[in-house]
Design a protein around this nucleic acid. Structure first.
Length: 366
DNA sequence: CGCATTTGACCTGCGC
DNA sequence: GCGCAGGTCAAATGCG
């Protein structure tokens, strides 16, 4: 028993963007790569599900599997990184994006420095469903991947049903559910569809596996990864009723690269944001983020904060508002001294993705 | 003592 | 049906 009691589930009731059951998406182990000059390349992976990339100039932002349909693959040319997260982590935001076809992006060079993988998951037919599945969005400064591949075409949950029970029930009474999980471990009564949270994956170059992102995490598992000498660690946010999870693994082909996958939304503020000196950017982010980036629970997006914090092109102490071209600068008090760097993080070129998931995802990979 | 981590077992889904 | 892999549980252990 020990210290259990960490809330599971919750996460702000994400669940939009579903619709994989329409059979549009393919499952893992699928994809294609066409990175010739800027076209998209798409691949999927057992872990990261599907990735979708594209150059803005192409106007294509990838799609789920190889047979995505609809205009939801396009992105507003002016989309910012926060837009992504908005879309990824907020079903309504995602839906909004998906409903907003746009003309091909223009000429902004793409640095492809970070990769996001946001999985919109089948839900009980909410907004996301109407909007279709996940869409990949793109900013000039980042490549973004997005997928929605939780289910087979027949709508089968792809993973652990027990987990589904947890997460489904978590929407109502996370705590009780957590406590009862053990007691009802073999219980399959609540065998509803698994409702997985959106996921966002970050690739960072770091010596440290567990990247500091302002939240407190509790490790609850570790697994060896096939074909990789590096294990994958599983973390949960330690805040009760916050069901955000995080997976951390290191690329075996590029050991300097850490893949951090967030799942869900925090329902609380970052503990780090409450500190004065230790999380400058987080604080800035907390104040600078527009309301639409705030999760339902009133917190902000630690993943976004972490992403920016670790972004090599972001000056220390930068405000997230810099990602919001149309947003007025936040009213911030005089900037405090920049926080000491926690690690050396560098988002990787997206080419690295191919290296990270070579065989399992690349169709033409031996 | 409380909390976090470790680690083997277990469960589930998927591919063959 | 079986084996594999991903994901989670939970007892044991460690640490401050």
């Amino acid at each position: 028993m020990s210290s259990r009691g960490v809330g599971v589930g919750g996460g702000g009731g994400v669940g939009g963007g579903g619709g994989d059951h329409h059979g549009v998406y393919h499952q893992h182990g699928h994809g294609h790569l066409a990175r010739a000059d800027g076209a998209e390349f798409v691949f999927s992976n057992n872990d990261m599900e599907s990735f979708f990339f594209s150059q803005p100039g192409s106007g294509v932002v990838g799609g789920g599997g190889s047979s995505r349909t609809g205009a939801d693959e396009l992105m507003p040319p002016n989309s910012s990184i926060t837009d992504y997260l908005q879309g990824f982590l907020d079903p309504s935001g995602l839906a909004r994006h998906l409903d907003t076809p746009c003309p091909p992006a223009e000429d902004a060079p793409v640095k492809h420095e970070l990769s996001l993988d946001a999985m919109s998951h089948d839900s009980q037919g909410t907004s996301g469903g109407a909007a279709g599945e996940g869409a990949a969005l793109l900013t000039p400064n980042s490549s973004v991947s997005l997928s929605s591949s939780d289910r087979e075409g027949d709508g089968q949950p792809r993973r652990c049903k027990k987990k589904a029970d947890d997460e489904v029930a978590a929407e109502g009474d996370e705590k009780d559910q957590e406590n009862s999980t053990k007691a009802t471990k073999p219980n399959k009564k609540k065998a509803e569809k698994r409702q997985r949270q959106p996921r966002v994956a970050f690739l960072t170059k770091s010596e440290v596996d567990h990247l500091e992102d302002g939240y407190r995490w509790r490790k609850y598992g570790q697994k060896a990864v096939k074909n990789s000498p590096y294990p994958r660690s599983y973390y949960r946010c330690t805040t009760p009723k916050c069901g955000v999870k995080k997976r951390v693994e290191r690329s075996y082909q590029d050991p300097s690269t850490v893949i951090t996958t967030y799942e869900g939304q925090h329902t609380h503020h970052s503990p780090a944001s409450l500190r004065v000196g230790g999380a400058h950017l987080f604080m800035a982010g907390a104040h600078a983020l527009p309301p639409h980036l705030m999760p339902p629970g009133g917190g902000f997006r630690p993943d976004l904060m972490g992403m920016m914090r670790h972004h090599p092109t972001i000056p220390s102490g930068a405000s997230p508002s810099m990602f919001l071209p149309s947003m007025p600068p936040p009213q911030m008090p005089a900037p405090s001294p920049p926080p000491p760097p926690l690690q050396q993080h560098h988002f990787t070129d997206y080419a690295l993705l191919q290296d990270l998931f070579p065989s399992s995802t690349m169709p033409n990979n031996p």
